[in-house]
């Protein structure tokens, strides 16, 4: 059930916690101990802005184990406002309504459950920025 691995990932899954290079300013998500841009090991953790836009997307119809009950579901690359691209599920949206460039916001949702006896894993998904204006 990978308890320890899921536990270690909780900050990035709950809070979009990434890293910011203290030398060149590059922001990484998932967090990186070595800056992929300048090689510096001088970094700070940072909860990224929970907003961005759809960079690309598709529909998963043949899901991996533990995701069967949710299929079909959309997944996307979301370009965060802080810079990094993050792969994520989209939620609270009809597939036909998704557009490249669509503004999205992070929500914490159930990613999967390890059967009826196992852990329930929560983490980020993104949905259209609609709740704010009531659309």
């Amino acid at each position: 059930m990978e308890i320890s691995r899921n536990w270690r990932l909780r900050y990035q899954r709950y809070k979009l916690e990434g890293t910011k290079c203290m030398d060149c300013g590059n922001v990484s998500f998932p967090p990186r101990r070595v800056c992929p841009k300048c090689g510096s090991e001088n970094y700070a953790t940072k909860a990224l802005m929970p907003t961005g836009e759809v960079y690309s997307y598709t529909l998963v119809t043949s899901p991996p184990e533990y995701f069967e009950s949710q299929a079909p579901y959309p997944v996307a690359m979301v370009k965060l406002d802080d810079g990094p691209l993050v792969s994520t599920q989209l939620t609270d949206v009809n597939y036909d309504a998704i557009r490249i460039g669509m503004r999205v916001e992070m929500v914490t949702r159930k990613l999967r459950a390890y059967g009826k006896n196992g852990l329930i894993i929560y983490g980020y998904k993104f949905r259209p920025e609609e709740a704010k204006d009531g659309n």
């Binding site: 949710q70 599920q89 939620t91 609270d92 929500v107 949702r109 159930k110 329930i120 929560y122």
Partner: peptide, 13 residues
């Protein structure tokens, strides 16, 4: 609640 929502996710939001 949708497929990925439960009392926990509603509470967090």
């Amino acid at each position: 609640a949708g497929l990925d929502e439960d009392s926990t996710t509603i509470a967090i939001e």
